[in-house]
Amino acid sequence: MSDHDIPSTAAPPTHGRATVRTYLAIGAVLAVLTVIEVQLPRLMAHGPLLVVSLVLTALFKASLVAAFYMHLKYDSRAYLGVMALAIFLIAYFLVLLTFGQFTTPHARFRSPVHAPPGWRSASVPSIASAASAPIRIAPCMLG
């Protein structure tokens, strides 16, 4: 059988998506969650619980937009795959670049931006070496 014999659909169906009522309901939920988000810092003490609550609320709102307004819930899974790949890549690079920062006691809360004058910390960007302490380089070693 040649390729021409394979039935194909030119595009995923656009109908069968959410109704106007659903779109409006999602919009109302987003608006209400925004009001709650703004009020939360005024009602709760600023701490980890507040940060986690706000981040989770923001992620929930973002996923509502992606699922219903960007139609990820209804369209081809390939588009979801593109987004998942992007999120995986950013997570991969994030772990790669900051692994040493958060696993080495000496490196914690120390950034090259705020390093003492004449000193800088360099983290080697590989998983194998990221676990080791950051290399301190004295100005005289830099030539």
């Binding site: 659909t9 595009a11 390939a78 588009y79 593109v82």
Partner: peptide, 13 residues
């Protein structure tokens, strides 16, 4: 069956 994704939409994604 084979679903062909619209190329412009895939490009936007």
């Amino acid at each position: 069956t084979r679903t062909v994704l619209p190329s412009r939409k895939l490009a936007v994604w």
